[in-house]
Design a protein around this nucleic acid. Structure first.
Lengths: 188, 188, 188, 188
DNA sequence: GATGAATGAGTATTCATTCAT
DNA sequence: AATGAATGAATACTCATTCAT
């Protein structure tokens, strides 16, 4: 019967948080985020109980968005390699297209504020990607390594590649492709 | 402001900083670091002009120490692959043996406080490693990619592997070796 | 702002306020009181214009209730001393039977938020008690002291006695009686 | 070797706290107290770890000062009654002469912030007064009541009397004397 | 040079009150 | 009338840095 909580406002806050955290890191003040979102500093706390809560939710949402982007429009018919290539391109394209989200995620990923539950949720969100990687390496030289290690290596390669693509955007596609080939040599 | 007297005290501060930053991240208070070092909070600022200064110097020192460790006792006679393997083992062994230094470095690496000059110096310190990688990939499939990209990929792999080795120390050597083989497939 | 509809709701709020203020003091949040009352935080302000208003009304109501309890069932026939004893027992019994009301009242009594008008009303509510005391001391050693002083002393004795009765409930009646005798020696 | 903590500054803070708390109650901001003391808000926290700490120390100091004032210059030769009268006069004189300390103490006394340890220390400080009261009531009608109760009653009488003396300063001495006689009738 | 007290700007969070629904 | 989201001022406490001793 009262004014309902607004999804728009919540989205404005998370989106502002992405921008501010990308720029200033996690030491950004909640008041700065609220102002960026066009919301009073008090309101931020009706949508997120604590700053830590905001950070964790943001982390999970960005990870989920990244995973969803990576798996978008996978060619159902194609072989594993083709699917991997598609996923890889999706992933790196998303990351280079949303540099603020990516930078925010980089800050979030190393933060001690992220709870194990949030990490768990993020890894859950990435499970589709992990399954695809699993199929890719099934016959390959890393077939006996722990899947967690292989996922970690792939993620590391993706991050490092995106760093480079952002620094040298003119040849971004070449770098993306070169690293995919390298990845495939590693696991395929 | 004048040149400080005691090298011991400076070392005590950086060493304390490693421990404290590994534990608390870069938001650790300078007073906490000073106390860990057995030094007054005021004294910290006669050895480092600002907190940012301390952070940057620590970054450069840790990177240099890591690079030195990686290049230690390279087999002068051996082939490139053998040298790479030796270097890789050195690197990962150092990182797993000094988890606090590694953890501190992880925090430092992602910080906006690190100046371009410090990054430059760090990359300078890693130039020996880079040269070895350059020789390794000279005939390989990544011979045409920018060296910076290839160095970035190798570093990313090393970091991800160390993460995994620390989580699963019983099989650390296996993981180290598996990732080296993967790296060699990528570039060799 | 218009006259509110439900007396029940008003009562629920004051009763919740007693409980919460007894526990947390006057710094208790209005939202906490509203929730205890099973009412929205906004609604509290249709029954009481401000927090200060709630506090003052609560003060007057509790004082009035205490006075009413004290004068309940006075023996019309008995002498002054007998009436005083009856009143004293009523008073202390009420206070020990409603520890939350008493504790809330203690917080309210000392607050700067209570207006002179509220204090005046409270003293009005106590006038029956004051009249009885007046009769009691009419021939006694304090017959010339200002009545306000004598009332203040009696109130102070009552409060202090209740404190002790609550700490040592096994002998509550003895303490009540001992203090009454002391009071009578003072004034009777 | 560094600037030592200054007793003067500590005293300035407690003294400012007395004034501000007397006026605004315990909800007074630490920044207000610091400003009154002519000290930065940060400095307050080098002398008192938390606001709660300040409050507790203030409580103990004021209680001790009050007790010391009460026992000042007791006539060693005189009888118990004479000593009691002297103590009573000291006590009420101190309280009326330092109305701010008294008012602050009133706020402190009812606060939940005061720890049991602080209450214990305060009661320790009052032990001299308690012993004198003990001698006074030894042969009197309250000889069998718990001493704690009797001390509580005396304290309550003192507080109530001071209230009245402050409201009617012209006859302060008369009130003081009238209440002493009442007290002596109660216990002597 | 060494110490640690002094400073005051900065931060997350709370809360009385208002107002859209 | 009832609800609960919106507001923004207020608060205890922290911390990098300076400076008196």
């Amino acid at each position: 019967m009262a004014r309902p909580r607004s999804d728009d406002k919540r989205a404005a806050i998370t989106s502002a948080a992405v921008r501010v955290i990308a720029l200033q890191g996690l030491s950004a003040a909640t008041a700065t985020i609220a102002k960026q979102a066009g919301v009073s500093n008090g309101s931020l706390f009706t949508y997120f109980e604590t700053k830590s809560d905001l950070i964790n939710q943001l982390y999970m949402e960005l990870k989920a968005e990244m995973a969803t982007a990576a798996l978008n429009d996978l060619p159902a018919e194609g072989g594993t390699r083709e699917q991997m290539l598609h996923m890889w391109s999706n992933w790196l394209r998303w990351a280079t297209a949303c540099p603020e989200k990516r930078r925010a995620l980089a800050h979030l990923d190393v933060s001690d504020e992220i709870t194990p539950a949030s990490r768990q949720a993020a890894s859950q969100a990435m499970s589709g990607v992990a399954r695809l990687l699993q199929r890719s390496r099934e016959q390959g030289p890393m077939r006996e390594a722990p899947l967690g290690l292989v996922v970690g290596l792939m993620t590391a390669l993706a991050d490092a590649t995106v760093d480079f693509m952002i620094r040298d955007p003119a040849n971004a596609d070449q770098h993306s492709r070169a690293t995919f080939d390298a990845l495939w040599r590693m696991v395929g």
